[in-house]
Design a protein around this nucleic acid. Structure first.
Length: 325
DNA sequence: TCCGAATCACCCTGGACAAA
DNA sequence: TTTGTCCAGGGTGATTCGGA
């Protein structure tokens, strides 16, 4: 009930400009004290309502706020639009109602924001059917807002993006990409882009810095983001220089391994409580690095070159300490 | 007639308390 | 928890009034 009244209060102020607490109380059929509390609640919630004292005084919304019918800013409206993805509508059986609501939200946006918001919906994909890594959900470190904000702006504006990106096991480097869209899969965010015409997928949590460039990105006029995502997922799991590694693992380190591996192909539990997993890594270097991090908690079973490589490393380290300590 | 101070009316602010 | 009532305090604009 109170939420309804707060909305009514904002709409009254929007439609009729400055109104005294007594007038608002009459309109809303509550006491002036209640109106004052509601005004306080609105202010606390960030609604730019201010008081003008004295004769002919009253409450008023900031003029800029009045231009937006719903009081939603661009990002808020966009969030609602994206949240209303077709899967959500299917799941909840609210397809037509959702479509109508989305139209209203679009309609409520200022003229100059409508086109970008509608376009932006085609550039965001929430929880597609295919999980790129085919593995359990892991909670990523949150990306700093300014970085993700910069990426989002470039994606929506169709501008090129300069990223400082740290691939697994590698130093972060700067690269310029043409963004296509953003995808979230179980709380993990990805940027779909092309670099020099080749498809690239970047995990947002590995982006250290981003700069929107003042150049238009090369991007298809229309793109089915979900389809593009599925194609890349398939390619990602099966192609490239990826290497498959079989290893025995201390269960306590499973999460760490899963966080760095591309995909878990198989998993079984041995009698002694240790896990045997078959996982894929981006390349040889990635596999070596990941296994080395796990130290004695992981025992590589295959391929042979990896076992040999880790033995060589361990021997070199052993020699180093024997000589210098 | 003009100007400045005093007064009035209207309104917001905030706290306390009680009732639903 | 929400709402209504009461109260004291303070800000602002309009009006009134007296002196120059």
């Amino acid at each position: 009930m109170r939420a309804d009244r707060l909305v009514s209060l904002v709409l009254l102020l929007r439609q009729r400009g400055r109104l005294s607490a007594a007038t608002l109380a009459r309109e809303l059929e509550v006491s002036t004290r209640t109106v004052l509390r509601d005004i306080e609640a609105l202010s606390a919630a960030g609604i730019p309502v201010y008081a003008e004292r004295g004769r002919y005084g009253g409450f008023e919304l900031l003029p800029g706020f009045q231009t937006e019918l719903t009081g939603l800013n661009h990002d808020e409206a966009l969030a609602l639009l994206v949240a209303g993805s077709r899967r959500g509508a299917q799941v909840f059986g609210l397809g037509s109602a959702l479509a109508s609501a989305m139209l209203k939200i679009l309609d409520a946006l200022p003229e100059e924001q409508r086109a970008t918001a509608a376009g932006a919906v085609q550039r965001l994909l929430i929880d597609p059917e295919t999980d790129l890594l085919s593995r359990r959900q892991v909670v990523e470190e949150e990306l700093p807002d300014p970085v993700v904000g910069e990426i989002r702006r470039a994606v929506f504006a169709g501008h090129r993006l300069r990223l400082r990106y740290a691939a697994v096991g590698q130093e972060a480097t700067w690269r310029t990409v043409d963004p296509i869209g953003l995808v979230t899969v179980r709380q993990q965010g990805y940027l779909l882009a092309t670099k020099a015409g080749e498809d690239r997928t970047y995990r947002l949590s590995r982006v250290q810095a981003a700069e929107e460039l003042d150049e238009l990105a090369e991007r298809p006029e229309r793109i089915d983001l979900e389809r593009a995502w599925q194609e890349r997922s398939t390619r990602f799991r099966t192609g490239g220089d990826q290497v498959a590694v079989k290893l025995r693992l201390n269960p306590a380190r499973r999460e760490q391994l899963v966080r760095t591996a591309l995909a878990v192909l198989s998993e079984s539990l041995e009698d002694d409580g240790r896990l045997v997993l078959e996982v894929t890594f981006q390349d040889k270097r990635h596999a070596e690095w990941a296994l080395w991090q796990l130290a004695t908690d992981a025992q590589p079973l295959a391929p042979a070159w990896l076992i040999h490589s880790l033995q060589t490393r361990a021997t070199a380290l052993d020699n180093h300490y024997n000589q210098h300590l």
